[in-house]
Design a protein around this nucleic acid. Sequence first.
DNA 1: TCACTACTGAACGAATTGTTCTATAATAAC
DNA 2: GTTATTATAGAACAATTCGTTCAGTAGTGA
Lengths: 194, 194
Amino acid sequence: MKTQKTDRRSERSRRIIGEAFIALLREKRYEDITVQDVLDRADIGRSTFYTHYYDKEDLLDSHIEAMIDALSQHMEQAPGTTMLLIPSLGLFQHVQEQRRLYHAMTRGGGLEIHKRTMQAKLSQQVEQRLQATLKKPTPTLTLTLAAQVVAGTFLTLLQWWAEHDMSISPKEMDGYFQRLVLPGIQNMLTDEVL
Amino acid sequence: MKTQKTDRRSERSRRIIGEAFIALLREKRYEDITVQDVLDRADIGRSTFYTHYYDKEDLLDSHIEAMIDALSQHMEQAPGTTMLLIPSLGLFQHVQEQRRLYHAMTRGGGLEIHKRTMQAKLSQQVEQRLQATLKKPTPTLTLTLAAQVVAGTFLTLLQWWAEHDMSISPKEMDGYFQRLVLPGIQNMLTDEVL
DNA sequence: TCACTACTGAACGAATTGTTCTATAATAAC
DNA sequence: GTTATTATAGAACAATTCGTTCAGTAGTGA
């Protein structure tokens, strides 16, 4: 057995390709970026690209997946707060730290393409959290819809925030999020007690 | 002066192209649809396509714009309800009538690409409605965010609905929407009285 | 040192795009 | 009905882009 995936060259290539891709996303829309653009910007050979990624889309997917994973990790690590549906403050803070990435994704339209995927993953986790905090059994449909709206609203605010250069503090954003979402959820799950 | 845009052939071509496009959207993602696919399905010449549309994207845009216009028209025609932010029931009903189109767009991913545009237009109208119903002057930022969330939540529900074959009645969807959104907005605009 | 693995760079066919052109057919106006 | 106008068909075209292949080179880990 050989030690796999420890070749510096591979990591370097993936890193350089990724950086070139993000840089390009700040200038062009994702759809307008060609593989050739990435090759030129990263200054690597065509065959090298295709040994690392199946596709241009694969390149985007890997980044999106990493973003989703980071968000999910924040979700899971956060203490089981009963008052809050998601650790939104921590998430907003995390996004601000990664603002360059989110900015590029927002500008380039990469996020929009996968917003559905992100929302699906997020809402799934929200649904679990909701179910855990509820006392009485609740119709699945109600739960699902509530979770969808929570995740959707969060992503909506995130996108709006990124488009406006994140000039508002994470705390403020969190405040808006809480005030806008929590009442609706409580109303929706009336008698179930949060 | 010649009467412009009354040639039956033009309208027929545009109609056939549009139908082919929608049909293809049910089978493939927008990005995977080529102009050639449209030509084959519509059974028209290549040059014909390019006399009507600048682009493949132009074809999508024209449909999206029509959808947005239809929604906007419903918004404006609706009586100035003070209780409701948007005539959501009417909108849900309208969407159900156009379900084939929305279905195709949802499946093909066309909506996601332009969700930002739709949300921008919708939220603009929502903001105007909000401002009209408020008594006290309110910070623009608060209004804007509230409008964004209203429009975003509506589109989120719309998308979820379309993905689930619209098996729920428009009335039910409207009920969920009201219960999920109104409390948050009222909370957000406290003391301003809706 | 040595075996391995990744990269370069070029070349390739295939597919797609958007343009241009001529001949043909449909249309609207008279 | 005749006629001038306009849309379409259909083919051909160069230009891109894509994804693959391969031989030579260089970096890497053991």
